[in-house]
Amino acid sequence: MHALVKQYFSGANEMQTGLLMEFVLHGLASYSTISKKMFENKIEFKDLFGSMMNISTEHDDDLGFEDEDA
């Protein structure tokens, strides 16, 4: 995201870059590209599609996956 902001706002200092990255996050959440959850004193952003497709490797044996070396 830092590279994206620097690409379009190359003259932005670090404080401005941080603000612009936050702006991008809120924009992505507005279009439901990522999720936004508000807690008491913070906002958490998450990748919606990535969290749906994320399969924990801790339980691969339960899913029928085996190590090739085994």
Score class of each variant (00 low, 15 high):
Q7K: 15
N41T: 06
A29Q: 02
S10Y: 06
F9K: 12
K37H: 06
S35F: 02
S10D: 05
F39A: 12
S32E: 11
N41M: 07
V24G: 01
F45Y: 15
M21H: 02
D67G: 13
E68P: 02
D62L: 15
L20E: 03
E44T: 04
F65S: 08
G50L: 04
H2E: 11
D62A: 14
F49G: 05
K36C: 09
Y8K: 12
F65P: 01
M21F: 03
F39Q: 06
F65M: 14
L25P: 00
A3Y: 06
L19W: 02
T57L: 12
E22I: 00
E44F: 05
M53F: 10
F9V: 08
G27E: 03
H26A: 06
Q16T: 12
D62R: 01
E68A: 15
S10E: 02
F49D: 14
D61I: 15
A29H: 00
A3P: 00
E14W: 03
F23D: 10
Y31D: 11
S35L: 03
S32Y: 04
L25W: 01
F45G: 05
N54W: 07
V24D: 02
A29E: 00
L28A: 13
T33Q: 09
M1V: 13
E14N: 12
D69S: 15
M38F: 06
D69G: 11
D60E: 08
I43C: 05
E44G: 01
F23S: 08
M21D: 03
Y31I: 06
E66L: 14
E14D: 12
I34F: 03
T17M: 03
S56T: 15
M1E: 12
H2C: 05
E40A: 12
E66N: 13
I43Q: 04
T17W: 02
A12W: 04
G64Q: 01
S32W: 02
D61F: 14
S30L: 01
F9N: 11
H2K: 06
F9W: 11
V24C: 11
E22L: 09
D47S: 05
S10R: 05
S35G: 13
L28K: 07
E68N: 12
T33A: 13
L48G: 03
K46M: 10
A3Q: 04
A3E: 07
E58W: 04
E66W: 04
G18E: 12
E14F: 04
Y8M: 07
N41L: 06
A12N: 07
N54A: 15
S30F: 01
D47P: 00
Y31P: 00
M15K: 13
L48E: 09
L4Y: 08
N13V: 08
G18T: 07
G50M: 05
T17H: 04
F39M: 08
M53T: 14
S32C: 05
L25M: 06
E66C: 14
D61L: 14
T57S: 15
A70T: 10
F39V: 00
M38G: 02
M21A: 11
A12V: 07
S56C: 10
F49P: 00
K36Y: 02
V24Q: 05
E40R: 08
S32K: 01
M21R: 11
S51E: 15
K46D: 13
E58N: 10
M21V: 12
F23Q: 11
G18N: 13
S51C: 09
I43F: 01
S30E: 08
D60W: 02
M53C: 15
S10P: 00
E44C: 05
K46C: 14
N41R: 06
S10L: 01
F39I: 02
